[in-house]
Design a protein around this nucleic acid. Sequence first.
DNA 1: AGCTCTTATGAATCATTGA
DNA 2: GTCAATGATTCATAAGAGC
Lengths: 285, 285
Amino acid sequence: MEIFTDIRLGDCKEVLKEYPDNYIDLIITSPPYADARKNTYGGIHPDHFVEWFLPASEQFLRVLKPTGTFILNIKERVVDGERHTYVMELILAMRKQGWLWTEEFIWHKKNSYPGKWPNRFRDSWERLIQFNKDKKFKMFQENVMVPMGEWANTRLKNLSETDKTRDNSKVGSGFGKNISKWLERDMAYPSNVLHLATECSNKNHSAVFPESLPEWFIKLFTGIGDTVLDPFMGSGTTNVVAQRMHRNSIGIDILPEYYTMAKEKTRSVEYILFDKRSTYGETNA
Amino acid sequence: MEIFTDIRLGDCKEVLKEYPDNYIDLIITSPPYADARKNTYGGIHPDHFVEWFLPASEQFLRVLKPTGTFILNIKERVVDGERHTYVMELILAMRKQGWLWTEEFIWHKKNSYPGKWPNRFRDSWERLIQFNKDKKFKMFQENVMVPMGEWANTRLKNLSETDKTRDNSKVGSGFGKNISKWLERDMAYPSNVLHLATECSNKNHSAVFPESLPEWFIKLFTGIGDTVLDPFMGSGTTNVVAQRMHRNSIGIDILPEYYTMAKEKTRSVEYILFDKRSTYGETNA
DNA sequence: AGCTCTTATGAATCATTGA
DNA sequence: GTCAATGATTCATAAGAGC
């Protein structure tokens, strides 16, 4: 199967006009946080973040399939001792635009930036806000099941003691079967809290997002051959991961440096995959 | 030192009118979630939650000291497949009332109940929203420091080798003193993500809140002899904890069952403490 | 190969200084 | 006075070095 990786230079709200309606399966992105990257993106002021973002999200709504999902990674900054309200205002405004606010995942950043301040602790979480066009959307929960670690040992033991008794007393019933399924299972569905470390390498890019983050959502919301969009791609992490997972992808960024970097990274992955395929092909096929 | 525990029956926005301005050091509460406890509290519809809450928060703002803090434990419900927006609307409305939205802590509920739904995973976090009256407020960060763990031992040893060199080269400087402080430390400041298990006992109360939750915030934001308020006390967990920690406390609930239960629990704690004191007194003093 | 040990650094925040 | 730049603070992770 052929898949494509479109790396585009330009403003996403303009570039996306070239794409048809209901075309994308998953949009996942981390826009430049308000005022956070003044040096690289020119600095959107927190007070103007919503009006800046809405024309883009309007295009996202148009190109997304009705069964598709939009995951927005964002966190409000502290401004003058308070958390700014632009994220909440954005969610309210996007609902008026027609989006459904389905869920909010928490990304717990285990290795958050150190520091000590008189009024607050280290900020070690970010929002992963899920929007949809329709109440019915694609979700492949079984693809992101996690091994039951210690959690299982303590929790399942407790459950099993009570339930095994009931199991014995109801031998042959459907209930018993359910319990045994539970016991045999060594994988569990995750919750809406993700524990991932930020990546410490990759000095080139100012907004590093660990590969496991897009990977998780691509597994959860798309199948092979589906199409993923990152409208603020930065160095193209999402596209690299999508390519590796055999998903089509589109990445857009307004900065030439990022465009070049992402082009480079996705190309090199192609080569690597090609090399591996040929190497492995000799021994396996 | 004498401390008091006031358990009151009534509507908090009315009862609080009896208390003076700038009187409370910490307000911590978990209001009846919109529509979540229809059977016990009469069910506030999500669409009317904000207008229902604002008269109460106005009183909270009045009775709180300028150096005090208000911690609101809340999570939006899923209504018709979407997360409802009443929490965000409440934050925006409370800021207009004069509150500062200082921070949002995440309570990660490690043992949230397992379950499976077609469109979402287990909800294993809640918001702990911090509001203040003033940018300058009391905070005793050192009271909630956490052990650094095994890993810290190795790391600190490693650091010391590098830093001792620097120390030697700058003998007598303030820098050297800093390093020695580092070496002696085995505790680290926490972040804004709290990992607590929910309590599974206490089936009587419909909004169970583990004792460690009020305990953490009482340690962080109050000293001995300060006054804590829980305006939707439920079974009185906050007051029991405050009493045990030698803080004055006020608990208010509109339901006679909770009033009675909280009266009972705070009284029995008094007795237990008294018993312990007399018993231990014989052997120790 | 598998360990342990070492080092660099990540979407941070606040107070102070300078323009 | 307002706004921008600089310095101080200090935790968890992974990549790299060493054995």
